[in-house]
Design a protein around this nucleic acid. Structure first.
Lengths: 136, 136
DNA sequence: GAGTTTTATGTAATAATATAACGCGGTCTC
DNA sequence: GAGACCGCGTTATATTATTACATAAAACTC
């Protein structure tokens, strides 16, 4: 539960970020709630409020196609709105990456349309190399 | 409610596709349900089942970041998994487009990672040109 | 065309995800 | 110390989506 160069986290924010970091993968808000019951969490709102802040700080990403949340892979991940995720439908693993060419293309499109970008969601679904090897 | 070169739609599928086409923008499943009550719809499942098929046929897209559905902008939109959406947070308008450069970049990334793509979600959030003009 | 399988349907119940509304307590600032 | 703000706790509720079971209609097989 490293300190990070981010705003001092509150107790609830630290707990939520800790669960996500420890999980090493995506968790739903309710899964986090269950993990934190022993730490005194009682209600979904405690999780959602912390997640809102963590997403705002760029420490956590929301996976829209999974309704789940994941700790940012880049321990200091500040320059954002700009991550992409590949989600393996076999093993559930999520790979975060920065798709420079795609981002350029989308930014160009937005510029040409006079569309001001607030954020982007880029999520790939499929099967990762490891799972394909395993399959007969 | 044009006939399309697609599988013959069932009655429920036609009704759902019709509401989405008429709406000219995204609708949630429950919004569709309310629109179709006068046509005899009673339960969410009637909508979700039709939507599943329509998405499978490529006639409807799901907007993950909105939990909503929209009729495909390309009346015969067959070659898919490959659309992107720009969603204006002021007026709610959705622009569907095909981001060739971005798709190339993401496909290349997947190839390099040995990740087999099943589908992609690309959604841009922001403010469209028209809304920016209106703003003081 | 009788039997079988598949697909679509209707309905009720429930699960999973997310927010609204209220009140309390701390910490700033002035 | 009054006011503003923020985080927190709690209850209730809203929204989105699925499970489970029964019926009916279409398509396929022999």
């Amino acid at each position: 539960m490293t300190a990070h160069a981010h705003p001092e986290l509150t107790k609830n924010q630290s707990l939520v970020f800790g669960s996500l970091s420890d999980a090493g993968g995506p968790l739903t808000a309710y899964a986090i709630l269950d993990l934190l019951r022993e730490d005194g969490f009682r209600a979904p709102l405690q999780v959602y409020r912390a997640l809102d802040k963590l997403v705002e700080y760029g420490m956590v990403h929301r996976l829209e196609s999974l309704n789940a949340f994941v700790a940012c892979a880049h321990t200091g991940c500040s320059a954002h709105g700009a991550a992409a995720f590949a989600i393996c439908e076999q093993c559930g693993d999520v790979i975060e990456f920065t798709p420079d060419e795609a981002l350029k293309g989308l930014n160009d499109w937005a510029g040409a349309q006079d569309f001001t970008l607030a954020r982007m969601t880029i999520e790939l679904r499929g099967t990762c190399g490891a799972c394909k090897s395993k399959a007969v």
